[in-house]
Design a protein around this nucleic acid. Structure first.
Lengths: 365, 365
DNA sequence: CCCTATTACGCAACGCTGTTGCTAAATTCT
DNA sequence: AGAATTTAGCAACAGCGTTGCGTAATAGGG
């Protein structure tokens, strides 16, 4: 991955990405919309729009007549000009989705993975799933930019390595990105599952998506974080082990070796059939996150949560509201993910699109 | 505060900040040092160095003779060309420091604040303290760029407001930055105390300071976070209420209204004279942060911690090491702050210097 | 119907920064 | 003395956003 320095090529990519982001958020836009959103001059925006139009990423779609004065050209993204495939690799299933440039999920397919599957088995499943997906769906001339993989960790996003995968035996230091690129003949992006998930939520909500978390309750409890306008992965791509934070000192021993982890306390309550108590435990953890990170938005997701969505939503929303010091200026929105079971796979695809059309990431020193 | 768009002015500020950062980190440097660290071309670096030299921020300090070949010019920062004053506002004391362009603390002074002091009382104390400090210290032609204030919260960094200050009655929605700028006749930067503190650590450690936290144990327990190369403040500047995260479900009721907060559990142990147990409680909370955020470095600080520094350091380091899944690639360094009691005031001053000479912060949308 | 006012867009030149290509400077060694 | 090596500087170029200005497209009033 070549290093990005601050020069005029960066300016081009950065400002084009801003226009794309405006297009994705508001549907249709004009030059003046982008001027207001970005602070660039009208002339600069015209130039950026012209380049994106030549590249086929946006197109004029009509005019707005202001009454007196020249009509303004209205633009929109060309959603079907670019696609990405996203994969959510869980312990027993592989979910694939096809996502367009606007972030719309066009197809979703789940296939089983063998128990304790190996890298070659995953690659074969990916290849046949992608072949089936691109066979079924006519991309209509749209380019397939690559494949994003959201997977259980721990993994090393920067190097494309799966360090180990909890509950799987054959995944020690596997260079998954490299071998997948060779096997699939497409660019591949690899990230932790919850990081892909929070990226999907960031795409759904647009620029107003401030500091936020995605809480995933599905074969364990994890969290993905969106901080300062970007996904937070941590020093070793290991951030998000939310389920393994202690909330009950001297509580039951967890599989991770600690005592009183949120996950084990939650699971004991759930196994006792006490969903309300399980939900309240998650709520305690969520408020801990708010106290630590001051998040504006918490999104709840995951198959195990979706069995009792209202119970979890109510418990978390109530705890967030009831926590002392909640005032008019210190609010946190709590929602369920609108992407449902596709959230991780969709986010993985969006990460691929971000690599091509998103804000370039400077590497200061 | 004018908005920063991505244009050539941004490129200038950004690349100059990189050179300044290299200078701060390595002491002396050459053109080739900066080329390697930043990825810019040698010619670009020469241009940046020339501009900084004209501005008096760096200067040639010698040559390195490579044996065969033209000698390379060696440069250094001009530390005494710029200063900032930092203030740490606690409930009963005001600490002021004078910091130069290299981050060196030249003077530190503590004065008492009246119980339950008011904004006018603070402003008077700041004014007389700054006057005393600039009187005692001949700045030798160096420019005083402004005053940084690190204060207890909650506060609104973006708007320069103190929303309220825990334990103080006269601080509801006080526009402290604005009134301080008027009173002092200097630019003022306002931030939460622990955010200033972590900024000081980031300056001390340089570019290798990845994702990190500063844990402050002093009249309460708080945490400042350095994530993705910048301070994390949260949606409402309220991040860092680390002491008010629950670690003991159904534990003792905390002043914040929750039960089993780290702070109250820690304080009960400390008041019982059981320093080892108090330290272990903090260690549980620190490992929770590592699980959530995957930090590479944790720095411990604060007057109450410094009463038993080795006990806290040992407990935290042991817990970090013993946590399951610690492997060769998943390590976290634990240290005591080398700035001691000055860490917050020094960081506040460094934030002012960063505003002038640090990386400009783009406002995407 | 013509002219003015209003709103938007495009052209051309400019300003600035980094990049590219090349030359000069300063040294050591053969 | 000349070649080789390493560094620095000059000039032109490339590219992007900004500035300044003119053109286009409309509605309404005289």
């Amino acid at each position: 991955m070549t290093r990005i320095t601050a020069d005029v090529t960066f300016l081009r990519g950065y400002n084009q990405a801003l226009v794309m982001a405006v297009g994705r958020t508001v549907g249709t836009f004009e030059r003046s919309t982008v001027v207001q959103a970005t602070g660039l001059t009208p002339q600069a925006v015209s130039k950026v729009i012209a380049r994106l139009t030549v590249d086929g990423l946006i197109r004029p779609t009509g005019v707005r007549r202001p009454g007196v004065g020249k009509p303004a050209v209205v633009y929109e993204l060309v959603p079907h000009s670019r696609y990405a495939i996203g994969a959510h690799v869980a312990r027993r299933t592989l979910r694939l989705v096809l996502v367009d440039l606007a972030g719309t999920v066009h197809h979703s397919a789940v296939s089983p993975l063998p128990r304790d599957f190996t890298p070659p088995q995953l690659l074969d499943a990916l290849a046949s799933g992608i072949k089936a997906m691109t066979g079924v769906n006519d991309l209509g001339g749209g380019q397939l930019t690559g494949v994003g993989i959201g997977m259980i960790g721990p993994l090393d996003h920067a190097h494309g390595l799966v360090r180990g995968a909890h509950g799987l035996r054959h995944w020690h230091d596997v260079p998954l990105r490299e071998i997948a690129e060779k096997h699939l003949g497409l660019p591949v992006h690899l990230d932790k599952d919850v990081t892909a998930g929070i990226t999907a939520e960031a795409w759904r909500h647009g620029a107003t998506f401030g500091d936020a978390a995605l809480i995933m309750i599905e074969s364990g409890i994890g969290g993905g974080f969106w901080l300062g306008g970007t996904a937070h992965r941590g020093a070793h791509t290991n951030a998000g082990e939310f389920g393994h934070t202690v909330v009950d000192l001297n509580g039951p021993r967890c599989v991770c070796g600690r005592h009183g982890c949120l996950e084990i306390v939650h699971n004991h309550a759930a196994e006792a059939g006490d969903v309300a108590r399980a939900a309240r435990v998650v709520a305690v953890g969520v408020v801990n996150l708010l106290q630590t990170l001051d998040l504006a938005h918490v999104v709840l997701a995951g198959a195990d949560l979706l069995r009792h969505p209202e119970a979890y939503l109510a418990a978390v929303a109530e705890a967030v509201q009831a926590d002392v010091r909640r005032t008019a200026w210190l609010t946190t929105k709590v929602t369920l993910s609108s992407l449902g079971a596709d959230v991780i796979a969709a986010g993985a695809a969006m990460q691929v699109l971000d690599q091509h059309y998103g804000i370039p990431e400077l590497a200061p020193i």
